[in-house]
Design a protein around this nucleic acid. Structure first.
Lengths: 246, 246
DNA sequence: TCTGGCCTCAATGTATACAGAAGCGGATAG
DNA sequence: CTATCCGCTTCTGTATACATTGAGGCCAGA
């Protein structure tokens, strides 16, 4: 069996990202060790990793809380994301490994058909999974562990933020077209265009995200009620990996 | 007194950055707890943070080692650094808070005089301290915790890499001129130019770094002798903060 | 002599016990 | 009635004891 601390970390991380633990929720060691059925030691280890990820933060010297989120955070996160993804796309263009991007090109062209029958896939899983494969292809192409790790950290926060905004089918279509431009640029080996197309995509994506924000006061305050019984969106959503989708 | 785990983390981090613990050195919990005079628990916490920082990594499932470094790593790190610092400079230009940069502008103009009397300050502390203040000013100006944290992580690795390359007074003069261009661009509010000037600076900086690399086989291998008695450059070097200098 | 398997040992991973400190509640005085 | 102070409770931080797993060495057989 895997290590208890890894299990605890994965469980807590997932609960934070999925809003089962909403921002501001107090993370008490004894309570968590009881709930997860392990001792305090691995729980502490998991909490330390969450703090390093920026998913939890100390509250007044004693005690940890799930990191609060604000609209401001979204903008700041996108400033970082833009820098990283533009660089990643640029490098992917330079690396010139066309195979995976040719496949993505074909699939992205089929997105309108994919999104057409909204009844079959109302949560658009297949679309988000395609975008996740795009991210994976870029990660693979850049061949840069430092950059990939930084991107991964950003995607973690994005996954949490996505639960703040509503999906918009029209926006997904547009996003697919933007992705296609990026892929085309990468296949052309045009690093500058790949970076520019990425920035365009993220600009539009941020616009859309901010336009559909669901900001209750709960999300903004640091002091939330500690009861874990409030998930804003219990219905099935795409997996964690599909962070950078819309 | 501060927490023992923080003390241990700071101590180990400092030893890794200063090459007192060279890449590949095994980090054993019992040995460290004995050497630092604390129990294994806070040592484990410190080691976990080092792994999160990328300063240590697991070796074959069991045991940790100080992360190896290679010339390849340097290039990869600079790819990330370029993305982050270009974005940071660009944002600093947009924010339009001239005061700190006006001060830096004046000081950067005095750098030739500063470097002239090499006898008074052979390690060029005053120069590196100026560059550190430049970094601080940018961090302050961008007003973006996500970006600042990513930059901070990069600077940690840069600090370690700097011990791999020799200082070059001529290069420092050139670097000061490049920094001055960046500051001018920020003061002009020219985001594009600030980003471009940053990329120029980092391109030259990488050239210089790679050109003066001191790569013994020790630095490349994962399996080093575990004895901690080999620091390649025991003479006084600028503090940790002066990471992005040359 | 070389190879393979077993066994021992050592180091990590987990649980628990102990110490200290911060917050909370109650009681008392103004 | 309110504010402040004191004591208690509960939580974090640290140390230590226990479990478990992987590595290395030794012995036996080919």
């Amino acid at each position: 069996m895997a290590r208890a601390s890894d299990t605890a970390y994965a469980a807590l991380r997932s609960e934070i990202i999925s809003w089962e633990l909403s921002p501001g929720t107090v993370l008490a060691e004894v309570e968590l060790s009881g709930r997860l059925g392990i001792s305090r030691t691995p729980v502490r280890e998991a909490l330390a990793r969450l703090v390093a990820d920026g998913l939890a933060e100390p509250l007044g010297g004693r005690g940890l809380v799930v990191s609060p989120i604000s609209a401001e955070n979204v903008g700041e996160l996108f400033e970082l994301r833009q820098a990283l993804e533009a660089q990643a796309a640029s490098l992917a263009a330079v690396r010139r490994d066309p195979a995976p991007f040719l496949a993505l090109q074909n699939e992205l062209r089929e997105v309108p058909a994919l999104l057409a029958d909204a009844d079959a896939d109302p949560a658009h899983h297949s679309y988000y999974e395609l975008v996740a494969r795009f991210d994976d292809a870029v990660d693979e192409a850049v061949q840069n562990p430092f950059l990939v790790q930084a991107l991964s950290a950003v995607r973690t926060h994005l996954a949490r933020i996505r639960r703040l905004s509503r999906d918009n089918p029209a926006r997904l279509l547009e996003a697919a077209r933007e992705h296609l431009v990026i892929v085309d640029a990468i296949l052309d080996g045009d690093a500058g265009l790949a970076a520019d197309a990425t920035r365009v995509h993220l600009y539009r994506s941020l616009q859309s995200t901010l336009g559909s924000l669901i900001l209750t006061t709960e999300n903004l305050t640091t002091e939330n009620r500690p009861d874990p019984e409030n998930r804003p969106d219990p219905e099935n959503r795409p997996q964690e990996k599909d962070a950078s989708a819309q």
